[in-house]
């Protein structure tokens, strides 16, 4: 977590990336079909636990993904959406791109977990483009995932490096999808987004709802 510690956060123990990933994993039920986005969400796979059978999908055309192969066993015909070598579990299979995205758009994917630049109280997501004039725009599967999965979860730092909340009244970065995020997991709080309301489900140790509210202008945070 790179965000500076505003003085208001003195005494607050922020959740680490690993702790956030574990928290997301706790909310993934046995039997779910899940797509973990590139970046922060990838770590969720480390916390799913042997007691649950969760089927991991990757949009380049594989379902039933296993962990990274041992060093030396990499096969670059078997990769995930981040181009990293993976393995295939028994029961896993391959399919072409149109089928892979039909799994999202057709409502067959239970959960996707994505990173975010900004999320609005209405659940709008911005995670593909900063809109900077010299930036090369690249969207990949983000838009399909965001609106295609039955449930879209977001993992992010709550604040930008400049200390501004990334949960905003309205996204200023180009949108990925409208009203698609149902729950937000961050280093400071877990927040449900439904019907335009932001409900704080969990607060980092030492953080009060009032303090979180003071960091989140323009949105009324509700207690669970």
């Amino acid at each position: 977590m790179n965000a500076p510690n505003p003085s208001t956060l003195a005494g607050v123990t922020r959740w680490t990336r690993d702790q956030i990933a574990r928290r997301v994993a706790q909310d993934i039920p046995d039997g779910a079909v899940v797509n973990l986005g590139i970046g922060l969400p990838t770590a969720v796979a480390n916390h799913l636990g042997a007691d649950k059978e969760v089927v991991l999908h990757s949009e380049n055309g594989v379902i039933g993904m296993g962990p990274a192969p041992a060093s030396g066993d990499e096969d670059y015909d078997l990769i995930n959406a981040g181009k990293q070598p993976v393995t295939l579990l028994p029961g896993g299979c391959f399919f072409h791109h149109a089928d892979s995205f039909a799994m999202m758009r057709g409502g067959h994917l239970d959960i996707c977990v994505l990173g975010a630049f900004q999320v609005s109280a209405a659940g709008d997501l911005a995670n593909w483009h900063t809109g900077a004039p010299d930036a090369i725009p690249a969207v990949g599967g983000a838009m399909d995932l965001a609106i295609g999965a039955k449930k879209t979860l977001v993992m992010m730092d709550y604040l930008t490096k400049g200390g501004e909340a990334k949960l905003v009244p309205a996204c200023t970065y180009p949108l990925t999808g409208l009203a698609c995020v149902s729950r937000l997991y961050s280093d400071l709080a877990v927040i449900d987004l439904a019907g335009g309301h932001a409900t704080v489900v969990d607060l980092a140790p030492g953080l009060s709802l009032d303090t979180l509210q003071s960091l989140t202008p323009g949105i009324t945070l509700q207690a669970a």
């Binding site: 949009e59 072409h96 791109h97 149109a98 892979s100 995205f101 039909a102 999202m104 758009r105 969207v139 990949g140 599967g141 983000a142 838009m143 399909d144 609106i147 295609g148 180009p174 949108l175 990925t176 999808g177 409208l178």
Partner: peptide, 27 residues
Amino acid sequence: PQGNLAERIRAAGAGIGGFFTPTGYGT
């Protein structure tokens, strides 16, 4: 968007003249 890319290509191959997709709506 990647899924629209795949589906637009598939549509050409399947003789589909166009299709409505939720991906990208509002963006």
